[in-house]
């Protein structure tokens, strides 16, 4: 038998009343709640931390059922949890991440956090008294700070994730996220044997626009066109800025006819909605290429290439119009 687990030898020389006075004072100075209950869930001891936070006197608490003192406790769960501690003689834990708090106590940052009650990590420890496990020590740690900062962190991460998907100027998806979405939609369409169509659109005479009104005028045109296009799209369409003045729209579960109809609507709406920049009224138009997923296409890139070739054809035919990739001659497709 090793002698290492006997109680601390340095205190054995002190009289027991001194030791217990020290123990009591330390316990009352702890920034952790200490509460001891017996096997019938009656409170037999508590320290200053929990007394002050619960704002009750010892007479109101000691000797009474813990469920009467703290009626907010989930009684059935609590009884089962503590019976495990006694029966298995093992500690048990409750973390703020799963249960924000067990005891409804105020905390020390009521002004600078939005938490109503103290977030808590609780530990339930079996106490060995005269060889019998008949008491349970409940430790209550205030982790309101941790909880608060974790919440802030999650919020920031969410914002960052959003920012990394959004184009700064137009506030629609950026190219990277749009292309990831297309990759997913492509895989989905292939797996479930569903239709998929794509629209690529380009603002006509954008260079001239920049020359006439300056880059701020060009930016205003991009922002307004984005809003105009958005107004005719359906909720499931995925709209992104492909680059410069080029935009792209993924149309899940849409056939070529549906895509052409939508493209024509986009084209018409842009053409009849003038954009205001300073004192100028600017008349805009877009050229649009439309493609749909065919059985021969082996990658989503093919869908982009086809729509792009159709867009080129729409420009060549005089702009402000829609062109269907299926009507492309074989040469222009392979170009």
């Amino acid at each position: 038998m090793s002698n290492t687990n006997e109680s601390a030898p340095s205190t054995t020389s002190l009289p027991s009343d001194v030791v217990s006075s020290i123990t009591n004072q330390v316990s009352d100075q702890l920034n952790t709640g200490v509460l001891v209950v017996d096997r019938d869930f009656k409170v037999v001891m508590w320290n200053r931390f929990i007394q002050v936070h619960a704002n009750k006197s010892s007479e109101e608490v000691v000797g009474r059922l813990i469920f009467d003192v703290f009626p907010e406790l989930p009684q059935r769960w609590f009884e089962r949890k503590l019976s495990g501690v006694l029966q298995l003689n093992t500690p048990s834990f409750s973390s703020w991440e799963q249960r924000h708090h067990l005891f409804e106590l105020p905390h020390t940052r009521p002004i600078t956090t939005d938490s109503e009650f103290m977030a808590q990590n609780c530990t339930f420890l079996p106490l060995d008294v005269a060889g019998e496990h008949s008491y349970i020590c409940i430790l209550i740690e205030d982790v309101t700070d941790v909880c608060h900062y974790q919440g802030q962190l999650q919020k920031t991460l969410k914002e960052l994730a959003l920012i990394s998907r959004i184009d700064g100027l137009t506030q629609i998806f950026n190219r990277r996220h749009w292309q990831e979405s297309l990759e997913q939609e492509y895989a989905k369409a292939r797996r479930h044997n569903k239709k998929l169509a794509l629209i690529m659109l380009d603002l006509d005479h954008f260079k001239k626009l920049n020359d006439n009104y300056g880059h701020q005028g060009g930016d205003k045109a991009l922002i307004d066109v984005t809003q105009i296009v958005k107004s005719v799209l359906r909720i499931e369409d995925v709209f992104g800025r492909y680059g410069g003045e080029e935009f792209a729209i993924i149309l899940p579960e849409t056939d070529i006819q549906g895509a052409l109809d939508l493209a024509q609507r986009v084209c018409n709406t842009v053409a009849k909605t003038p954009v205001l920049f300073q004192e100028h009224i600017i008349q805009l138009s877009v050229s649009i290429g439309v493609s749909q997923l065919s059985d021969n296409d082996t990658s989503y890139e093919k869908l982009i290439a086809n729509a792009d070739a159709a867009l080129y054809q729409a420009k060549a035919n005089g702009r402000n119009q829609v062109f269907n990739a299926l009507d492309l001659s074989d040469e222009s497709l392979s170009a």
Partner: peptide, 12 residues
């Protein structure tokens, strides 16, 4: 919660 169930049985 399911998370709490996993944590609880693990600890036991």
């Amino acid at each position: 919660s399911h998370d709490e169930q996993l944590i609880d049985i693990s600890s036991i």
